[in-house]
């Protein structure tokens, strides 16, 4: 199974950006852990991060081309604004999980809508940085269509 874990703007600052909300682990720490879990479970996990909306859309399109089985996406602030990411996700026929480190619904009202969730199969939020590894661990059990 091949999986893209796509991360949006400011996620590269994990570990230093408001650690009381997002924790002290860096994105590299999280990626290493997820890739390790993936190796054990026969899942090829590729981590990516961009501060640019268009680059993220490009990666979703790459996932379509490269016949990736699942996308885990933390679109960060673009969750609440990006119809382009919503549309790209709709074109991807594999399994899609929206992921957030914090629970956006508990924060400022401008974070309460999500363009990602209606285009996704599932939403996981507020489980901290551990949310990533919890999701990767669960992937073998989910109804992911065969490619």
């Amino acid at each position: 199974m091949k999986v893209y874990v796509i991360n949006g703007p400011n996620i590269n600052l994990l570990g230093t950006r408001e650690p009381e909300i997002y924790g002290y682990e860096t994105l590299d720490d999280i990626a290493t852990k997820c890739i390790e879990i993936g190796n054990k479970k026969g899942i090829d996990v590729k981590f990516m991060q961009s501060n640019y909306e268009g680059e993220m859309v490009g990666w979703i399109q790459d996932a379509i081309k490269n016949k990736i089985d699942a996308i885990v996406i933390n679109a960060a602030a673009y969750t609440h604004t990006s119809i382009a990411i919503h549309d790209a996700l709709k074109s991807f026929s594999g399994y899609k999980i929206e992921l957030h480190i914090s629970n956006p619904h508990l924060r400022e009202s401008f974070r309460h809508n999500t363009f990602v969730a209606p285009a996704a199969d599932a939403v996981v939020a507020g489980l901290g940085a551990d949310g990533y590894s919890h999701v990767v661990e669960m992937l073998p059990y989910l109804p992911i269509p065969e490619k």
């Binding site: 619904h105 996704a120 199969d121 939403v123 996981v124 507020g126 919890h134 059990y141 989910l142």
Partner: peptide, 14 residues
């Protein structure tokens, strides 16, 4: 509070 939606029985497991 955490939030998990859409994983079927695995919403509970996660």
């Amino acid at each position: 509070m955490g939030f998990v939606s859409g994983l079927g029985v695995y919403s509970y497991v996660i």
